[in-house]
Simulated assay, not measured.
Amino acid sequence: VTRFERICFPVIAAILISLLLPPIASLLGMLMLGNLFRESGVMDRLSDTAQNSLCNIVTIFLATGTGMTMSADKFLTAQTLEIIFLGLVAFIFGTAGGVIFGKIMCRASGWKINPLIGSAGVSAVPMAARVSQVVGMKAKPGNYLLMHAMGPNVAGVIGTAVAAGTMLAMLK
């Protein structure tokens, strides 16, 4: 992939998906802005800050803000446990489906694609890709899958954002 394509992708993806699903424009815009920071190569400090310290600070503030507004009688309900359980089931089926389709791609490509990259298709960035890397290294020590697994991992994030935007648009 050329440098021009890597720079154009976040811009074009943000514009097209924002036109199709306006409710997720800010979420996807920030994701693509981070990609643009990294790929441009001229904003190293800003890219490093966005990937590390700023991400950690925002996570702390979100967790603290959410935690301060929650009380046990409102949070620990059957509905909350049901949502957590459904999320767990979604991750299980997402990972299993990714591995199954990874195996299909592996056979279709003449055994050139490692089926483990399919397990990284869930939107748990970057943990799912790291798990694929670790499992692949255990099976074959010279196997380096991290960068190959990040493709479906980021695609899972974009797919999740698009699915959420579609659901929001249908609910309104």
Rank of each mutant, 00 (worst) to 15 (best):
residue 3 R to G: 07
residue 3 R to I: 08
residue 4 F to R: 12
residue 4 F to I: 14
residue 5 E to V: 09
residue 10 P to K: 00
residue 13 A to Q: 01
residue 14 A to Y: 01
residue 15 I to G: 02
residue 17 I to N: 00
residue 17 I to M: 02
residue 17 I to D: 00
residue 19 L to Q: 13
residue 20 L to N: 06
residue 22 P to I: 05
residue 23 P to I: 04
residue 23 P to K: 05
residue 24 I to Y: 00
residue 25 A to C: 08
residue 29 G to Y: 09
residue 31 L to R: 01
residue 34 G to V: 04
residue 35 N to I: 12
residue 35 N to E: 10
residue 38 R to A: 02
residue 41 G to E: 08
residue 41 G to K: 06
residue 43 M to L: 15
residue 43 M to Q: 10
residue 46 L to P: 13
residue 46 L to S: 13
residue 49 T to W: 09
residue 50 A to T: 10
residue 50 A to D: 07
residue 51 Q to C: 08
residue 51 Q to V: 11
residue 53 S to K: 10
residue 54 L to G: 11
residue 55 C to K: 00
residue 55 C to F: 08
residue 58 V to P: 01
residue 62 L to D: 03
residue 64 T to A: 15
residue 65 G to I: 03
residue 67 G to A: 08
residue 68 M to R: 14
residue 69 T to C: 10
residue 69 T to D: 13
residue 69 T to E: 12
residue 74 K to F: 06
residue 74 K to A: 11
residue 75 F to Q: 12
residue 77 T to V: 05
residue 80 T to L: 10
residue 81 L to A: 15
residue 82 E to R: 09
residue 84 I to H: 09
residue 85 F to Y: 08
residue 86 L to K: 11
residue 87 G to C: 08
residue 88 L to K: 15
residue 90 A to Q: 03
residue 90 A to H: 01
residue 93 F to H: 02
residue 96 A to D: 06
residue 97 G to M: 07
residue 98 G to D: 06
residue 99 V to Y: 08
residue 99 V to D: 04
residue 100 I to A: 11
residue 100 I to W: 08
residue 101 F to V: 11
residue 101 F to I: 13
residue 104 I to M: 03
residue 108 A to H: 13
residue 110 G to S: 02
residue 114 N to H: 14
residue 114 N to C: 14
residue 115 P to D: 01
residue 116 L to F: 01
residue 117 I to R: 00
residue 120 A to L: 12
residue 122 V to P: 00
residue 122 V to A: 01
residue 124 A to M: 12
residue 128 A to P: 03
residue 130 R to W: 02
residue 130 R to F: 14
residue 131 V to Q: 00
residue 133 Q to C: 09
residue 134 V to N: 06
residue 134 V to M: 09
residue 139 A to D: 07
residue 139 A to Y: 05
residue 141 P to Y: 04
residue 144 Y to Q: 14
residue 145 L to S: 03
residue 146 L to T: 09
residue 152 P to D: 09
residue 155 A to D: 11
residue 156 G to S: 02
residue 158 I to D: 02
residue 158 I to R: 01
residue 160 T to I: 08
residue 160 T to Y: 06
residue 163 A to H: 09
residue 165 G to H: 00
residue 166 T to E: 03
residue 169 A to K: 15
residue 171 L to Y: 10
residue 171 L to W: 10
